[in-house]
Design a protein around this nucleic acid. Structure first.
Length: 156
DNA sequence: GCCAACGTTGGC
DNA sequence: GCCAACGTTGGC
């Protein structure tokens, strides 16, 4: 089992939105970055842990989710009216994949980026690297444990 | 294959 | 809203 961090702009899709989804589960559509895609396609497994991160507005880790379905073609890449439409992707050779993610535990309080920057135990996180923009990032086990500890929750 | 132009991300 | 950092595109 692995651990990940996934970014979302809360104005587009927030933790509240995830909790409102049927079975608290959503298709993580719209990833259009090759490095992020490769993580999902090649390394994501059912049961992996996900730090759910709100970017831009009060940037924070706001909860923990689970991968409940491994990679499959992202249907939005074929929908012409979708903001995620990719005219260069062919149905017989999909370019982009998605996974299904289920809400597990909301943090009692958002764990802010500024707090994380101040904590030595998470100093190596990809999230904190200068200029890091990757929307799907690996998280090391000790980083996962420390983030959950700082948030005041216990999650395997 | 280089790299300038362009578009996007995301902290501030 | 600004803009630096980064990724992608496409001419050559």
């Amino acid at each position: 089992m692995r651990y990940w961090l996934m970014k979302t702009e809360p104005d587009v899709f927030s933790w509240d939105d995830l909790e409102r989804c049927p079975n608290r589960t959503t298709m993580w559509e719209g990833v259009r970055n090759y490095q992020a895609r490769n993580f999902m396609r090649d390394e994501f497994g059912v049961g992996d842990g996900v730090l759910f991160y709100h970017s831009r507005k009060n940037p924070s880790v706001v909860g923990v989710a689970r991968v409940v379905r491994a990679a499959y073609p992202d249907p939005t890449q074929f929908v012409e009216t979708s903001r995620y439409f990719d005219p260069r992707s062919a149905p017989d050779a999909p370019r982009w994949v998605t996974v299904d993610v289920q809400a597990e535990r909301r943090f009692p309080e958002p764990l802010t980026l500024s707090r994380l920057r101040a904590e030595r135990g998470v100093a190596g996180m990809a999230l904190l690297a200068p200029g890091s923009r990757l929307s799907v990032q690996p998280v090391r086990p000790h980083e996962w444990e420390e983030v959950c500890r700082l948030a005041g929750v216990t999650v395997d």
